[in-house]
C-alpha cells in the first residue's frame, strides 16, 4: 500500500493509449490502474482520486466517435465523481466521450452542448496526425488541476484525429470563454484560424475545453506522447525545440521530461497541495 494518489485509466473496447497513459502517470509520482469498461465494481471499490479516459477508437467509433462509450454504465460513476470535484481528463477519444457525456462544457449537467465534429478547414479534411502548439487560457491555468504548471509558453504536443473540431450551438457563443482551456497557436503563442496553426477548423481555435469548475478537461492533443523530451522531434521550433536540440548528444536526453509531462505534474502538484492542506 502507498499513500500516492490513485489515477484510474479507463479502457474501453478500442482504446489504444491506456498503457502509455498509465505509465506517464506513474512516472509523475502517482499510482495508476487500468480498469476495463465493464469493471464497474472494481473501479468503485478502488476509490480512485482521478480519472483519465485515454485515446483510441472506443467501440470502433460506431455511430459517432465517443457516442457509445458515453452511454456505458462506467460513465455514470465518472459523471458522479466529476460532479463531486474529482479531476477527470479525456484525451482525444476520451475527450470525445466527455463531450458526448455532457460533462463538458457542463453548463447544464449531462446536457449535450457541444460536439467534436469531423475536421474541416480550408484545404484540409479527414484524419490528421501532426505536431501542434498549445497555450492555456489564463482562467484555466488558475482553476484546472490538469493545467496549473503549464505556464504561459506555447507547448508542442501531437494530435492524431479525424473528429477534433469543437463546435457549439450558436446560442451559446457568448459563454464559450467560460469553458476555454487550451487553444491552438504557433510557436510564438499567436493564434490564427488558419491551417496549420488551427489544424482542424475548431471554433475559436479550441484544442481543449473544461467544465465551469475546471476539474474536467477534454483535450484533443496527446500529452502522453510528448511526456519525454526524446519524443519531441528535433525540428520543432520554439523554446521546447531549442531545449530538445541542446540535449541531442547528451545522455540526459533519455531521462528528460518533455512538455506533455506538465499536465501530469500539474495533477501530482494538485494532490500534494490538497495533502498539505489536510495536514
Amino acid at each position: 500500500m502507498t499513500n500516492k494518489p490513485l489515477v484510474a485509466v479507463l479502457q474501453f473496447p478500442g482504446s489504444n493509449c491506456e498503457y502509455e497513459t498509465a505509465s506517464v502517470v506513474r512516472e509523475s509520482g502517482m499510482d495508476a490502474m487500468i480498469f476495463r469498461w465493464n469493471q464497474l465494481k472494481e473501479l468503485s471499490d478502488s476509490r480512485p482520486d482521478a480519472f483519465i479516459l485515454p485515446g483510441g477508437f472506443s467501440f470502433q467509433d460506431r455511430v459517432r466517435a465517443g457516442a457509445v462509450g458515453a452511454k456505458e454504465e462506467i460513465m455514470d460513476l465518472v459523471f458522479n465523481e466529476a460532479l463531486s470535484g474529482k479531476p477527470v481528463l479525456g484525451i482525444c477519444n476520451g475527450a470525445q466521450i466527455l463531450v458526448e457525456s455532457g460533462l463538458v462544457p457542463g453548463w447544464e449537467n449531462g446536457r449535450i452542448e457541444s460536439a467534436l465534429a469531423a475536421n474541416h478547414i480550408h484545404g484540409r479534411s479527414g484524419y490528421l496526425s501532426r505536431w501542434v502548439f498549445l497555450r492555456a487560457n489564463e482562467r484555466a491555468l488558475k482553476i484546472s488541476p490538469w493545467l496549473r504548471m503549464i505556464g504561459n509558453d506555447p507547448i508542442p504536443v501531437p494530435i492524431a484525429h479525424a473528429e477534433g473540431r469543437f463546435v457549439f450551438a450558436e446560442k451559446d457563443n457568448n459563454r464559450i470563454s467560460e469553458c476555454m482551456a487550451l487553444t491552438y497557436c504557433d510557436e510564438n503563442g499567436i493564434e490564427t484560424a488558419d491551417y496549420p496553426v488551427n489544424p482542424n477548423g475548431s471554433f475559436m481555435n479550441l484544442a481543449g475545453i473544461m467544465n465551469r469548475e475546471g476539474n474536467v478537461l477534454a483535450m484533443m492533443p496527446h500529452p502522453e506522447r510528448a511526456f519525454w523530451m526524446w519524443q519531441i522531434p528535433p525540428w520543432i521550433p520554439g523554446t521546447w525545440g531549442d531545449r530538445r536540440n541542446s540535449l541531442q548528444h547528451d545522455p540526459a536526453l533519455a531521462g528528460s521530461k518533455g512538455p506533455g509531462a506538465l499536465f501530469f505534474r500539474s495533477l501530482a502538484d494538485y494532490f500534494e497541495l490538497i495533502s498539505r492542506e489536510d495536514q
Partner: peptide, 16 residues
C-alpha cells in the same frame, strides 16, 4: 436526438 447523456444516440444536434 442526443439531448442528454441518457437521452438519444443516433445524432448530435450540435453538429448534425
Amino acid at each position: 436526438i442526443t439531448s442528454y447523456r441518457d437521452h438519444g444516440l443516433l445524432a448530435n444536434p450540435v453538429s448534425q
